[in-house]
C-alpha cells in the first residue's frame, strides 16, 4: 500500500468511528436539551441495540425487520426508564439524577450480562459484497451503511427540530418549560418522546457498527465516554457542534492510531478534551 492509500484507509476508519461518536453525542444532546441531564446509560442503549439485533438476526428474523424492531425496543426501554425512574425524581437535584442514570447504566449492563452472557457477538454485515477499492484503500460496504444511516438520522433530526410542530415544541420545552406549558404543550409527554428518540439513536449507533465490532455487555462504556467528550467539545447543547466534534474525534483517533501508535489514541483524545475545557469551556463551536 502506498502512503496515500494508508491515509485514505485512516480516513475511512476515522469517519466510521466518528459517525458512531456523533450519533451517541446527538442522543446525549437530545436528552440533555429537555432534561438538563446527561444520561450515563446511553452507552447501554448502544449495547442493547447491537445485541438485540444480533440475536434477532441469528434467530432468522430478516435484517430490515430486525433493524426496526431493535430500534423500537430501545425506544420503548428509554421511554419506560424516563417514566418509571426519572420522572418521579423531577423535583430532586441534578446531582441525584446523574447518580440515578449511573445506577440505571449499571443495572442495564447487568441485565445485558444476564441475557447475552460474557461472550462477544458479531452481527453479519447489512449487505454482502467485496470492499470497494478507493485509491488503494479498502472501503467496506458496512462503512457506507454507517455513513448513510448517520446522514439520514441527522437529516431527520434536523427536520424534526426545525420543521415539525412537535420538534419545535420540544425545543420550546427545553428552553422554557413554563412558557411551553402555557402554549398547551404537555411537557411530560415531550420529555418522554425525547428520551425515546435518544435511546433509539444510541441503539442505532451500536447496531450500525455491530458488524465491525465484537459487542459484549461492557462494550458501551468507551463509546459513551467518547460520545460525552464529543458533546462537551461541541458545546453540550448543540447538535451540530457535537456531530462535528464526534467526527473530529474519530479522525483524530484514527490518524493517531495509524501514524503514531494505538497506545496514544485515548491519551490524545483526553488531552484534546482538557484543552477545550480550559481554553473554550463552552465548547469549540459556541459563540460566547
Amino acid at each position: 500500500m502506498s502512503d496515500i492509500s494508508h491515509l485514505v484507509q485512516f480516513l475511512f476508519s476515522g469517519i466510521t468511528v466518528g459517525s458512531v461518536y456523533a450519533l451517541i453525542a446527538v442522543s446525549l444532546v437530545i436528552v440533555y436539551k429537555v432534561s438538563q441531564l446527561i444520561c450515563f446509560a446511553q452507552g447501554e442503549f448502544f449495547v442493547f441495540g447491537a445485541l438485540t439485533m444480533t440475536t434477532l438476526v441469528s434467530k432468522g428474523v430478516p435484517v430490515p425487520l430486525a433493524f426496526f424492531l431493535s430500534i423500537i425496543i430501545a425506544m420503548a426501554l428509554g421511554a419506560l426508564i424516563q417514566q418509571v425512574l426519572i420522572r418521579p425524581m423531577k423535583n430532586t437535584s441534578v446531582g441525584a439524577l446523574i447518580v440515578m442514570t449511573i445506577a440505571i447504566s449499571l443495572a442495564l449492563r447487568g441485565l445485558a450480562l444476564l441475557i447475552w452472557g460474557r461472550e462477544s457477538h458479531v452481527l453479519p454485515p447489512f449487505s454482502r459484497g467485496e470492499p470497494i477499492q478507493v485509491l488503494g484503500a479498502a472501503l467496506q460496504l458496512q462503512i457506507l451503511w454507517i455513513v448513510g444511516i448517520t446522514t439520514v438520522v441527522l437529516f431527520l433530526i434536523w427536520f424534526f427540530f426545525e420543521k415539525t410542530p412537535a420538534g419545535i415544541a420540544m425545543r420550546a420545552c427545553a428552553e422554557n418549560p413554563y412558557g411551553a406549558s402555557l402554549m398547551g404543550i404537555n411537557t411530560q409527554k415531550t420529555t418522554l418522546v425525547a428520551w425515546a428518540w435518544g435511546s433509539g439513536i444510541g441503539a442505532l449507533a451500536g447496531m450500525a457498527v455491530a458488524p465491525m465490532l465484537f459487542t459484549q455487555y461492557t462494550s458501551g462504556i468507551m463509546p459513551m465516554v467518547k460520545g460525552f467528550i464529543a458533546m462537551s467539545i461541541g458545546g453540550l447543547g448543540s447538535i451540530v457542534g457535537s456531530v462535528i466534534a464526534g467526527l473530529l474525534l474519530g479522525l483524530v483517533e484514527s490518524y493517531t492510531i495509524g501514524l503514531i501508535s494505538s497506545k496514544f489514541s485515548d491519551t490524545i483524545v483526553f488531552a484534546l478534551l482538557m484543552a477545550v475545557l480550559v481554553f473554550r469551556p463552552n465548547g469549540l463551536f459556541s459563540r460566547s
Binding site: 419545535i168 428552553e175 412558557g179
Partner: peptide, 18 residues
C-alpha cells in the same frame, strides 16, 4: 416567556400548537 432561541415565526406557530 418567549422562546429566545426560536424564530419569531416559530414562536407564533407555537401559540397555535393546541
Amino acid at each position: 416567556q418567549i422562546f429566545g432561541s426560536l424564530t419569531v415565526k416559530q414562536n407564533l406557530f407555537l401559540g397555535a400548537y393546541v
